[in-house]
Design a protein around this nucleic acid. Structure first.
Length: 126
DNA sequence: AACTTGACTTCAA
DNA sequence: ATTGAAGCCAAGT
C-alpha cells in the first residue's frame, strides 16, 4: 500500500470518528475532509478494511443521496439500519432524511482547492 | 498493458 | 422522485 493511501485511510478513520452520534454524512464528504476529494469509493474500501470496526461509527457514513449503500437484501444493510435506528436515526426504505440528520461538517459551504492529499479550505487547516 | 470491480457522485432526462 | 449514463480511481485479474 502506498504512503498516500496509508495516510488517506488514517484521515478517513479520524473523520468518521468525528461524526456525532445520531448524525450521518456521505462517503464523498469524508473523502473531501480527508483531503482526497474524488475518492468517495475508496472511503468504503477503507471502512471495510478498518482494523477497529467495532469502535468506529461506520454506520454513520451513507450515500450522498441519503441511502444506505449496501444491497438492501444483504446482512450488512440490515445491520447498518439497525445501528442507525439504535441511535435515533430514522431509516425509511433504506433512506435517511438528510434535512434532519445530515452532519454539518467543517468543510460545509467552504471553498476548497485540492487535487490529492492537499486539501485547502478558507479558514480551515491553517 | 488492458480490463474489471466497487459500502460512490453528479447530472440530465 | 427515479433511473441511467458517465465520471471517478486504486486494486485486483
Amino acid at each position: 500500500m502506498s504512503e498516500q493511501m496509508e495516510h488517506f485511510r488514517k484521515q478517513v478513520y479520524f473523520w468518521v470518528s468525528q461524526i456525532p452520534k445520531g448524525k450521518v454524512t456521505s462517503y464523498g464528504a469524508i473523502a473531501k475532509l480527508s483531503g482526497f476529494p474524488r475518492h468517495a469509493r475508496h472511503v468504503s474500501k477503507a471502512l471495510g478494511a478498518a482494523p477497529n470496526r467495532k469502535k468506529l461509527p461506520w454506520q454513520r457514513v451513507i450515500g450522498a443521496d441519503g441511502k444506505i449503500a449496501f444491497n438492501p437484501d444483504s446482512d450488512h444493510f440490515a445491520i447498518q439500519q439497525s445501528l442507525l435506528e439504535q441511535e435515533g436515526v430514522k431509516v425509511t426504505k433504506g433512506k435517511v432524511e438528510l434535512k434532519q440528520y445530515a452532519w454539518e461538517h467543517p468543510l460545509e459551504g467552504k471553498k476548497t482547492t485540492a487535487t490529492k492529499g492537499n486539501m485547502q479550505a478558507e479558514e480551515f487547516f491553517r
